[in-house]
Design a protein around this nucleic acid. Structure first.
Length: 623
RNA sequence: GCCCCCAUAGCUCAGUGGAUAGAGCGCCGGCCUCCGGAGCCGGGUGCGCAGGUUCGAGUCCUGCUGGGGGUACCA
């Protein structure tokens, strides 16, 4: 096992116990910050100093002595430095040989989650089906898709669901534009882009022609009646837009297992069943007085019956219509298999392998075991934290405490526009302001397809063919959207998103293709048992390769795609650095040494390839 | 008002309580008889302010300042 860090940590923990430390706790081990001091280091002696009432340096010396008697694999020396750090210096040639062999033979092993096997439902994308997807939606999809890949890597069966909110008023808005204002697609205009344009136009007209708002209400009423020409047109419109979204997301490497339609949640009685349950168990009650009189509410403070004294979330409005949160509660009861009802299904053939929920008349597939999640991860931007909390709280108050615990809102910050991007989109900017919000209603947004198109156009001249350009463009955009932490607002900037050098997806792909190029040039040789005489760049590369499982585990544990993005960039950088500072492999005379060099490059190729796949980027062998 | 997030280099951002805080971009200067230069190397007085906890704080706690978001009988 090349996982030296954990065997080092285990030995330290055992030695600490022998010294009489009552509570050792987890032992931190990391690659040494000071390379001259060792290869791996631990500050554990500092933590133990208080418990043992001794100076850290003395404890470190004792730990080091114990480790010298029973050293971890590949140990060359155990030392103490910095007043208490315990350092491990390793026999690098043997260690590197083992890392390289494992990376090549079975791949560095990502250890499974303690609850591996537990099914996780990941909900992401959930873009309103009334207009083209923009870069904010794409960020959501890329995060969700990478999280799903990370959870699979940790041994979970994952089911990805895309929620289609087809009953909301935003569909009515576009229909008003088409039916009442007579808007139509222009020559060559994609349908989803046309709908985006119509949506903006309709909102502009609402301002000057308030009577249109009456048409909007009437359109919505007809959609909700589920019968007649308007309802049919709405259905057709949402289907076409969903197809467009799936095609857009597929360009970025994102796919889904199940499309969940809100209309089916209502049609199949999920909502009314869920509401009955909420009423039966006293989780919701009808407010008798106060500003919410006549509404069914869920008080923010449990047990509060009088909404006048506290805040409450409305589940059913006084006109009898359920709010989105009520539907979401029903959906989540189903996700966990708590509803006692199930969807009907049909294939969604137009794009990708996804299955769709269906109303009873259109069901084509036998019942399937979708849902029944042990864990649920909802990838939804940070602005929806409050309603997500309500869903979780509703589950808890219904008595489903285990499921409430297992429901996780993966909140992330939105995409906004940098001043430069705002200017490019014709937004009026103010001095001193650093960000401008996207607005679909005002047409202030960067279309996901437009961005991918632009990236493709930029990259095309240097790519060998169109398909390579597409994959390279997808990598560029996807990496840009993943490399920021979830709590960071992306101040979208065209120049940065489309850059091809430095910390970018293109750089990563180039490093991979370069490794493949070397492997093509040098004949295959048997795997070496050692990699001798590595220069510092080579040692760093080996360490970075060996860090792969830990990086994936950490990214999966914290559901943090950016952590994996950062690791992958460092891996590619370590390789480029190594490549620049070693002899051309094909010129190395000694076949054994050539074989060692080739195997290291191959190990990099394999590990970088796996990292790219987890990030949702198809590794390119040639560019 | 209350709740959440953010503040690190000129700009955009990384940074599980651990040693000398790092990248990318931009700027200046280098490196190709080329295994793919979309690369590599060199050039840096930066953690918003004030307290606190700790052997040790960019990281944890409190307060403040400045930004963003939420707090709808919208979704």
């Amino acid at each position: 096992m090349p996982d030296l860090e954990s065997s080092f940590a285990q030995r330290l923990a055992a030695a600490a116990k022998d010294l009489g430390a009552p509570d050792v706790g987890p032992v931190a081990v990391a690659p040494s910050a000071l390379e001259e001091v060792g290869d791996f280091s631990s500050p554990i002696a500092f933590r133990l100093a208080g418990q043992l009432r001794r100076a850290p340096s003395g404890i470190a010396e004792d730990l080091a002595a114990a480790l010298r008697l029973d050293p971890p694999p590949h140990t060359a020396a155990v030392t103490v430095s910095g007043g208490g750090y315990v350092n491990l210096r390793i026999d690098f040639a043997a260690y590197a040989g083992e890392v390289v062999r494992e990376a090549l033979e079975r791949g560095l092993v990502i250890s499974p989650d303690p609850d591996a096997g537990a099914k996780v439902v990941v909900e992401h994308t959930a873009t309103n089906p009334n207009k083209a997807a923009h870069v904010g939606h794409l960020r959501n999809a890329c995060i969700g898709d990478t999280v799903a890949r990370l959870l699979r890597a940790r041994g979970h069966p994952v089911e990805v669901q895309n929620y289609i909110d087809d009953t909301g008023v935003q569909v009515a808005d576009v229909l008003v534009g088409i039916r009442e204002l007579g808007l139509a697609p222009q020559e060559g205009e994609a349908f989803d882009r046309f709908c985006s344009r119509a949506y903006v136009e309709v909102f502009r007209r609402y301002e000057v022609e308030p009577h249109l708002l009456e048409l909007r209400r009437e359109t919505l009423r007809q959609i909700e009646s589920r019968k007649g020409a308007v309802a049919d047109e709405a259905k057709q419109l949402t289907s076409r837009i969903v197809d467009a979204h799936l095609r857009t997301m597929a360009r970025a490497g994102v796919a889904y297992d199940l499309l969940t339609w809100e209309s089916d949640i209502i049609e199949l009685g999920f909502l009314s069943h869920a509401l009955d349950l909420l009423m039966e168990r006293g989780v919701t009650h009808k407010a008798a007085q106060g500003p919410l009189a006549g509404c069914w509410v869920l008080p923010v403070e449990e047990g509060a019956q009088d909404p006048e004294t506290g805040e409450a979330k409305v589940l059913i409005k006084s006109d009898g219509i359920a709010t989105y949160t009520a539907k979401d509660i029903a959906y989540h009861l189903w996700k966990f298999g708590l509803l006692g009802l199930d969807f009907r299904y049909r294939p969604w053939s137009a794009s990708g392998p996804a299955t769709s929920t269906a109303d009873p008349l259109r069901a084509e597939l036998p019942p399937e075991r979708f849902g029944h999640a042990a864990r649920v991860v909802n990838v939804i931007d940070q602005r929806q934290s409050a309603p997500q909390k309500v869903v979780k709280e509703a589950l808890r108050r219904l008595g489903f405490t285990t499921q409430a615990e297992a429901l996780y809102h993966l909140a992330y910050e939105v995409v906004a526009l940098s001043p430069r991007a705002a200017v490019a989109l014709g937004v009026e900017t103010e001095p001193g302001r650093t960000m401008y919000a996207l607005s679909g209603r005002r047409g202030i947004e960067v279309g996901a397809d437009d961005l991918l198109d632009e990236a493709e156009r930029l990259v095309r001249p240097k790519a060998r063919d169109q398909r390579t350009a597409e994959l390279l463009a997808a990598s560029a955009v996807r990496y840009y959207l993943l490399r920021f932490g979830l709590n960071s607002i992306i101040n979208f900037d065209f120049e940065e998103a489309l850059r091809t050098s430095g910390d970018t997806g293109v750089y990563l792909q180039y490093a991979h293709a370069r490794a493949c190029g070397i492997l093509r040039r040098v004949e295959p040789l048997p795997a070496p048992s050692q990699v001798v005489d590595l220069a510092p760049e080579g040692r760093r590369l080996v360490k970075q390769i060996a860090a792969f499982p830990g990086a994936v585990e950490e990214a999966a544990r914290s559901l943090s795609p950016s952590a994996l993005a950062g690791y992958t960039f460092q891996l590619a950088t370590a390789f480029n650095d190594y490549y620049e500072h070693t002899d051309r492999l094909f010129r190395v005379e000694d076949p054994a040494r050539r074989g060692q060099g080739r195997a290291l490059v191959d190990a990099l190729r394999a590990t970088l390839g796996r990292s790219l796949e987890l990030l949702g980027m198809q590794p390119l062998e040639r560019i």
